[in-house]
Nucleic acid binder design. Structure first.
Lengths: 199, 199
DNA sequence: GGAAGAAGTGAACTACGGTTCAATCCTTGT
DNA sequence: ACAAGGATTGAACCGTAGTTCACTTCTTCC
């Protein structure tokens, strides 16, 4: 039956995602995935030609979800400053609640295939931010600036702040986490030239 | 003779550095290093207990050099805005001229030992920036802000802008590189609240 | 109900690279 | 010059993890 095969494939994919979320790529051996999915190691290869394909697919799905949430947050808001705040809140909320996953998606050593995929998604994040900044400049809210550099730098800034030394521990305490997010938003708003004197 | 032994050790270290600079950690097998150094693979183990130690030592030396240059640039300047510009120019000049090395130092997947070392040096960069920002706030040049978050975010921003899609190709052309650096400096100065209207 | 073929199994294969070690060479001290 | 000790060698070892494949089991259709 076709359904059975498709179901198996889905189970394997879900298992791989769960393993990555729990133990990262480091712990994502075919054996571990197969065990989690309740199938034999060989069966994985009936559905995926190679580990890189499985892992790239899992990565793509997970990243796409993040980028979608990110883009959705950007679309709703009016001003660039609000938009930046919204995307950071969205992104940070998700990342700090699932730190292992965030690390895996953003920074963890992995296959070249995954690294390539990661580049694509970093660009996707940057594109969303670039659009936000561009709109802000057009609306006269923001000073003229290099949109591409600003967007890329912001991606790096957000990533570093949320998957670095600061973030460990921040995930544990609501207060610290909220402060981190607030401060990061201030940083981001200043960086694009949206003056906000609220502290 | 003691000199011979010490010379061997140095040759191996230099060879490892050269290999990393050329092919990154990925290409830095013991065999490759030994070949480059003109010794047998086994000899490497007379000088270093394990690959992780060799690689960590090489990494530490290379990183320390960068951090020193970074700190030196920060120390000279007067205002925070000038200081940030100076460190970015320093850092970017070096990184864009040796992109493979920069990637290896900043982002390339490697041993856990190296990852740990990397964290230390990211913190070192952040500490230099934090001090810069702190001085700026004390001098009344910069608005009050969370220094730690700002420093960490800046480290991420600089890294991403210089070891990302933007940087490939930028290394080739002097014009593009200079533009990238100029724009990144503007971004950084805005981000810490040092208003600069020069564009 | 039985044959055909796909899905599933898991032990074995393979590739890779770090590590070891017995044999060898070289330097040093007498 | 010769013995002793350490440095050097590089082939062999080992562990790991992705991949394969001969075999079993199940579904499906005649």
């Amino acid at each position: 039956m076709e359904a059975r095969l498709s179901a198996s494939r889905d189970r394997i994919r879900a298992a791989a995602l769960a393993v990555v979320a729990e133990r990262g790529y480091a712990g994502c051996s075919i054996t571990a995935v197969a065990q989690r999915a309740g199938v034999a190691t060989g069966s994985v290869y009936r559905h995926f030609p190679a580990k890189a394909d499985l892992v790239a697919e899992v990565f793509r799905a997970a990243s796409q979800r993040e980028v979608d949430a990110f883009a959705r947050a950007a679309a709703l808001e009016r001003s660039a400053a609000e938009g930046v705040a919204a995307v950071i809140e969205t992104f940070a909320g998700r990342a700090l609640r699932a730190p292992r996953m965030a690390y895996a998606l953003l920074a963890e050593p992995a296959d070249p295939a995954v690294d390539a995929e990661r580049l694509v998604f970093r660009r996707a994040y940057a594109a969303v931010l670039a659009e936000l900044i561009r709109r802000g400049i057009a609306a006269g809210e923001l000073p003229d600036q290099d949109v591409e550099v600003g967007a890329a730098a912001l991606v790096g800034a957000i990533g570093e702040a949320l998957v670095g030394p600061l973030a460990v521990g921040a995930a544990g305490s609501d207060n610290i986490r909220d402060d981190l997010i607030t401060n990061l938003i201030s940083f981001a708003q200043r960086s694009i030239g949206a003056v906000s004197d609220d502290a």
